[in-house]
Design a protein around this nucleic acid. Structure first.
Lengths: 196, 196
DNA sequence: CAAGTGACAGATATTGAAATCTGTCATTCG
DNA sequence: CGAATGACAGATTTCAATATCTGTCACTTG
């Protein structure tokens, strides 16, 4: 509480962990490094996170939450037609991923490792995204622009069918010329399939 | 040429290499192992394959060719409607992959490593598969069952949209309950999109 | 007494020397 | 003479010793 000593919070630890991951990469980032970065003993870190795995999981969750928040804006846009909204949402997802992967490949690789080891958290994130998608599909059905017996199932199918354009395991292919055309072709086909 | 000594052919080397890969895995399979398995010096192997990478590439190609051959039968089936043919083809692809991944995960992992390091060969294999798909789409268009301005582009879009059900990087998810439903949902959506 | 520490045991990672492998080529073998 | 060999240099991998890390906990500190 003194002016020079900030209290050690979970939030501060997460920030320091992100920084350590950015600097050292996922393989060499240690709890000791995090503690060093904060100027505390590693025992203090364990007071806030039971294990190293829990710490990494929390960082992963934070990162994924940030991404899905960015997209929720498009999902909520009420002004445009359902087709345009759906297209924009997927384009927004694709652009965000591609930008991250292209701009700082090492950091992207770091988070790919983290997501690989935290299937549970990733699953929740995907549930989050498909919930956003479901809302768009439902709005489309309500407006008579889409047909979907089970909007949630349809949303999941849309998400799976576009995996090539947002799943990290395809990141290498996002830089190839023509990916945007491939994306458009897939989305055209899917949107045709949604029409009544 | 003597009864006990077979001549050393590329074919025999490829067979021995597959066996060594099966036994030792991709990381520990060496050219020396292959030569030992054949009872020759490793120099002889280099007479048929310029490098270890070329040898592994040839094995990869053989394996991929076997898989695409198995599918070409369905692609050629003239008796059934285009929708059923398309569905069967993708179901055949999915089943084949899932069976391999589930039955011998280690061997599947071995070939996943091989395909990762041989992007070129994999690309040709995918061209092969999309060519089969293109034929099915074209037949559907000719029969008036499908609409597709550019059948080859549509075939590629179909292949991309179903990646989750044949791309090795999703192999972990193939054992989950409900995958078949997800597959059906995606295929339903795509088939709807193909209809005139 | 709540927040933080640091010594400790067992697990994991690093390191550098030794072993093995890759790819070449002059030589042998049939 | 063409196919096969095995010794070789440089690159890569293995292995065991050494160092570091993880997670705990009795203890200190403000």
């Amino acid at each position: 509480m003194s002016p020079t000593t900030e209290t050690l919070t979970a939030e501060r630890i997460l920030e320091a962990t992100e920084e350590v991951l950015r600097r050292h990469g996922p393989a060499k980032a240690t709890v000791v490094d995090v503690a060093r970065a904060l100027g505390v003993s590693h025992g203090s870190v364990y007071r806030h996170f039971r294990t190293k795995a829990a710490l990494r999981e929390a960082v992963t969750k934070r990162w994924l939450d940030r991404t899905s928040q960015a997209l929720s804006g498009i999902a909520a846009e009420e002004g445009r037609g359902p087709e345009a909204r759906l297209r924009d949402w997927f384009q927004g997802l694709f652009d965000a991923k591609r930008r991250k992967a292209g701009h700082d490949p090492e950091l992207f690789a770091t988070y790919s490792v983290l997501t690989d080891e935290n299937g549970e958290v990733v699953g929740e994130h995907i549930d989050d995204l498909t919930a956003q998608l479901t809302r768009i599909v439902e709005a489309g059905v309500a407006a008579g622009a889409f047909t979907a017996a089970d909007p949630a199932a349809t949303a999941r199918a849309l998400f799976h069918a576009t995996g090539r354009f947002h799943d990290p395991c395809h990141a290498r292919e996002w830089e190839r010329p023509g990916v945007q055309d491939e994306f458009d072709a897939v989305l055209d086909l899917l949107l045709r399939g949604l029409r009544p």
